[in-house]
Design a protein around this nucleic acid. Sequence first.
DNA 1: AATTTATTTGTATATATACCAACAAAGAAT
DNA 2: ATTCTTTGTTGGTATATATACAAATAAATT
Lengths: 140, 140
Amino acid sequence: MQEITGLELSPKKVEYLKFLFKKGDLVRTTDISTELNVDPSTSTKTINDLSGSGYVDHVPYRGVRLTEKGRAYAEFFVNRHNILSLMLSHYGLSAEDACSEVSRFEAFVSKNAIDTICGAMGHPTVSVCGKIKHISCVSR
Amino acid sequence: MQEITGLELSPKKVEYLKFLFKKGDLVRTTDISTELNVDPSTSTKTINDLSGSGYVDHVPYRGVRLTEKGRAYAEFFVNRHNILSLMLSHYGLSAEDACSEVSRFEAFVSKNAIDTICGAMGHPTVSVCGKIKHISCVSR
DNA sequence: AATTTATTTGTATATATACCAACAAAGAAT
DNA sequence: ATTCTTTGTTGGTATATATACAAATAAATT
């Protein structure tokens, strides 16, 4: 498995993986389109992209699920979101504001930066948005 | 002058304004292309865009300068960069890492968030990247 | 089997970015 | 001042991302 830099995927694709991770198992492309407010054809196409680069397996007309690689990335993406939200909440942003602010820029924050921030925080396990796991977080 | 949300311009356009602000006066499109590592044709086109939306004045074959509006935005962009860099440096990132990390995502952080963070920091005047001014920073 | 629903494919649009080649203007040199 | 050189601009083309509508197709339901 290659190194995660954190900058591999566009903001939208990060959303897709986080949603698939949250749902856990086989997910229908229509569920994705509902959740992310896009046309079903859009989610199918994006899923095809993600499938082509190995993040998901897609059985047409059946559903989508994360690959091993996709799961690892999704897990990082969720942690990244939570760590950044926690950070912003330390500077006076409400949970909701922190969360929505982070959603806009999280795709552009590297794994290196997240590992460093996470270490400086003492590897917290709870954020304002959800729990934080530390599977892949290198101690710094 | 309309309210600044901070989300008006793309990352590249933010770079353009920050560079123009740094240079101060009339700037040649070629200087921009050199600084931002883009083709001269690219900088000319982008400047035309920025001119169309009122951020710069462009006299073809002569140069570019910020409008009043452009200057106000650029000033905010520089402050935003510095405040975010300072924030990341609080979590163990070096000045260079903080600065380059922030460069990637700063365009997606709202003025509201920056004002809040800035207030929580006690309106610092110095960052790891440069000085911070507080002209337009609403106290929170 | 027929109909309805879900999904995919094909085509199309919009934004942002950027390169190259062709052209125009400005400044310098004769 | 007319040419030469440098600088700057425009037009054409291309990529990546994200999106949607309409048509086609597969699956599920009656």
